[in-house]
Simulated scan of single mutants.
Amino acid sequence: MNNDWLANNYVEYIQANSPQYHNKLEEADLNLLKELFFSINDIFITCNYFEKNEFSDKNFINLLKEFKSYISRLLMVIPLNDKYLLDSLLRLLVEKLYRIIYGKHHHNLLESSVRRHERRKMSDRLNGRMLKKTELDTLYSTYSSLIHHTNSTPTDLFNFRRLAEVNTALISYILNTVVEIKEIYTLDFLVPILQRVNLDLSTKMTFNNDLQQSYKNTLLAYNII
């Protein structure tokens, strides 16, 4: 099914609510925005599967709901043109994903414990149990450094005139990270769970109708849909 109208609605929302930002975008920028929208939409749609009662008591379920909510907020924050805000949100998403995967592998832990365990402990306990652990650790370290200013930061990054200048390179910057987060989410959380269940017809129809073809191909490769 062609869902271009969804991405077009998003672009129209930006045009109506952030006209100055929208007017600075080239056609290539708009296409990247739509690509970002669909990547986030793939995560949003598949996260919805876990709203079923059978997952209501899982220690990762509330973290997953938060992950879904915050990754959607990226679409709202982009027109603000604030890289530090975007980096902070991406760092939050990486940590949420880390704890979601940790909870999945340690189902005996309470949610409160999953939320409190320090990253070093989680990392040690996930060694040898993930396909994309190196990539997740790298994202965590990178965005922790960015938001905590481990390295010195030019002061003009916080200049309001600088923030008012539209930096369309931020779109591809965010898209690249979202694609990486999506791959980790898919291979180390979604696929291992869905491979153990028989998807109901309604879910299969939703996935077939609402996911990007490339993402459907990934799920098909793992015999999920």
Rank of each mutant, 00 (worst) to 15 (best):
W5E: 13
N31A: 12
H105D: 01
N53T: 13
I147M: 06
N41I: 05
I14V: 12
R162Q: 12
V94D: 04
N151T: 10
R120D: 13
K83C: 10
N217E: 13
I174R: 01
N23G: 14
K121R: 08
I184D: 00
L90D: 00
L97P: 01
E35F: 04
I225V: 13
L109R: 08
D57P: 04
F38H: 09
V191R: 00
R162D: 11
L64C: 09
L33F: 02
N127L: 10
A28K: 13
T46Y: 04
Y98P: 01
R116H: 07
K216F: 03
L80H: 08
N48C: 09
L93Y: 01
E95L: 07
I61Y: 05
L30W: 00
T142R: 10
T206Y: 06
S69F: 14
Y49E: 07
L194I: 03
N48V: 11
N217Y: 04
K52T: 03
L90I: 15
K182W: 05
L175G: 02
Y13S: 07
I100A: 00
L63Y: 04
L97A: 04
E35T: 13
I100T: 02
F50S: 02
D156M: 11
K68R: 14
Y13D: 09
F158C: 04
V77Q: 15
D200G: 08
K121Q: 11
K204C: 12
D82N: 15
I224S: 06
K83H: 10
T186Q: 04
S144C: 14
T218R: 09
M130V: 00
F67K: 02
V197N: 09
I193T: 03
